[in-house]
């Protein structure tokens, strides 16, 4: 399956957006099912949660607060989905890609750093205490996961000797990177949970600060932020496919189908961990980030580098 990746016309971005939205919706539906089962309600009602919630928020009035910084607030709230789409743009779907960048890995990293600004702006905008505390909590959490994430992204790039995603996929013909870089993959998944403000890494929207960055949002604004979170989760999962999971490699089905299937499975796994663990509070998580994750992933990169040099 040594395929050449072709860059397609920009108009296909619409399809990419549609696919991302569909997978994100699937993730939200699965989350609804899991929540319903946990609470002893029928799973079918749970599956409709994203539709119900969308209808509710579309009907709800948009709300403002006193002296809110509306432009920055809206940029923060609406930006998450945009960043997710920009992440997806570099992911090859089998043979096709929207953006065949020679520095695709760095592009993804730049996009995930944008999330820092966006979540903070969403917290800053309403001029409210809990919201702002949520925004700053995200920054503290990001300080903990960002460096480990950068090195986790470095490992596949070192092994492939390229920052182009097509090359990274091609380098996994024999063996998927997830098999011999499990630490990098684990740290990467944790970081996806982190920048999606998700599950144990969602203290920025925690119950202890009345929902944090979500606390003052209503109506369509809230919908955008919630959808943006699922879109980021989807984009993070989609990017893991060319980086660690062999891209479109797989039996019988065409490459694009495998990319979708792997993305869906990873999204499902990330959704499933949501309620399983208590929150990792940023002030404690930062210790883990710097004292455990960072050394572990550096060691991983060292091993990968040695293997790459010996092999080369």
């Amino acid at each position: 399956m040594a395929e050449v990746v072709v860059q397609v016309a920009p108009a296909w971005a619409l399809l990419a957006a549609l696919l991302t939205a569909t997978v994100a919706l699937g993730g939200a539906g699965l989350d609804g099912v899991l929540a319903a089962r946990l609470g002893g309600r029928p799973a079918r009602a749970g599956a409709a949660t994203p539709i119900t919630e969308t209808a509710r928020l579309l009907r709800q009035r948009r709300r403002t607060t006193l002296a809110a910084d509306k432009p920055l607030w809206r940029i923060g709230v609406g930006g998450l989905g945009v960043v997710a789409l920009l992440m997806v743009a570099v992911v090859p779907l089998g043979r096709w890609t929207l953006l065949d960048l020679p520095v695709g890995v760095v592009w993804f990293n730049a996009m995930d750093v944008m999330v820092w600004a966006l979540v903070w702006l969403a917290g800053w905008g309403p001029n409210a205490v809990h919201s702002l505390v949520g925004g700053y909590r995200f920054l503290a959490q990001a300080l903990a996961y960002e460096l480990p994430l950068m090195f986790a992204l470095t490992a596949p790039a070192v092994a492939a000797e390229s920052l182009r995603l097509a090359d990274v996929v091609a380098a996994q013909q024999g063996l998927w990177f997830v098999v011999w870089m499990p630490v990098a993959f684990g740290v990467y998944c944790l970081s996806v949970v982190g920048f999606s403000v998700w599950g144990p890494l969602a203290p920025a929207a925690g119950a202890d600060i009345a929902g944090g960055v979500l606390s003052e949002l209503s109506g369509p604004d809230r919908l955008l932020l919630l959808a943006g979170r699922y879109a980021l989760l989807t984009a993070g999962a989609a990017f893991a496919v060319p980086m660690f999971l062999g891209g479109g490699a797989g039996p019988l089905l065409p490459g694009w189908a495998w990319v979708l299937i792997k993305t869906l499975l990873l999204v499902a796994a990330l959704v499933a961990v949501r309620r399983r663990l208590p929150s990792l509070r940023p002030d404690r998580f930062v210790e883990v980030g710097w004292l455990v994750l960072l050394p572990a992933v550096l060691l991983q990169v060292l091993i990968v580098a040695v293997v790459a040099v010996m092999g080369g």
Binding site: R41, A45, Q60, H130, A210, G211, L214, S215, S218
Partner: peptide, 16 residues
């Protein structure tokens, strides 16, 4: 609330 499939709000902005 949970029996009806409704949800508990975390803040006034979140509530109907």
């Amino acid at each position: 609330v949970t029996r009806r499939g409704w949800r508990l709000a975390r803040s006034p902005a979140d509530a109907d």
